Simulated assay, not measured.
Amino acid sequence: MTLTPPYRIRPLDGQAEHDALGARITAWRRERRLPSASIRPILDALRDEREMAVLVDTDNDAFVGCLQLHRAPLPTPPWTTAEDAQPTLVLSCAATAPGAGYRLGWLLTTWARHYAALCGHTRVACAVPLSSDHDTTAQRLLSHLVDGCGWDHLRTADTATGTAALLTAAACRTEGLDAFLATKVPVQPAERETVS
């Protein structure tokens, strides 16, 4: 007998799903008492129907998390030319439902690293916006991602929108991931630039 994993990750399907996820994420942010400005990039991505991988509960098909996938080269600055030359799957607009399940951030990170390896990327990367040195919400998130989800804090850098902590993690396949997660996101090979 094959057990159904508790979660499924898949692409969003059409504007109605993008709108529904936007409403859910807005509610999640309110429940967590996060600043309203923190949701703007996610709502912009959903409005434009950018590539989003959504995590759903297999029992009720409810949204419990999401990630935006960027397959284009890293924006420079703040990334260096050498960093930009590595095949990297960039993640942004991550959100999880409060109280929806145990370690959803770790599960999304593990899936992203596995998926990046399947696509031929060497790593995953993301940036955590920091509004100030005393931004306790961002600092808590940064600590959670590094200590609880296995990200490496590369450095803090100035970006077009302010200061951000740049995080990376090696792409790697994860044995046994299918016990937690069914994947429905199509594998798209990483585009590699040729050096002349």
Rank of each mutant, 00 (worst) to 15 (best):
L3R: 13
L3W: 06
T4M: 08
T4R: 12
T4V: 08
P5Y: 05
P5T: 02
P5N: 03
P11M: 06
G14C: 06
G14A: 06
Q15A: 15
L21I: 04
R24K: 15
I25Q: 11
R29T: 08
R30D: 11
P35Y: 12
A45N: 01
L46W: 09
E49R: 14
E49L: 05
R50Q: 13
V54P: 00
D59Y: 04
N60S: 10
A62T: 08
F63S: 04
V64L: 04
G65H: 06
P73V: 05
P73S: 14
A82P: 08
E83L: 08
D84H: 09
C93Y: 05
G99M: 03
A100L: 05
Y102V: 00
G105E: 06
H114W: 09
H121D: 07
T122L: 10
A127M: 12
P129V: 00
L130R: 11
S131Q: 14
S131E: 12
R140T: 12
L141H: 08
S143F: 05
S143D: 13
R155V: 09
A157K: 00
A157Q: 03
D158P: 01
G162P: 09
T163E: 07
T163D: 06
A164C: 09
A169T: 02
A170D: 08
C172R: 15
L177E: 10
V185I: 13
V185W: 05
V187Q: 09
E191P: 01
E191K: 11
R192H: 15
R192Q: 14
T194G: 13
V195S: 15
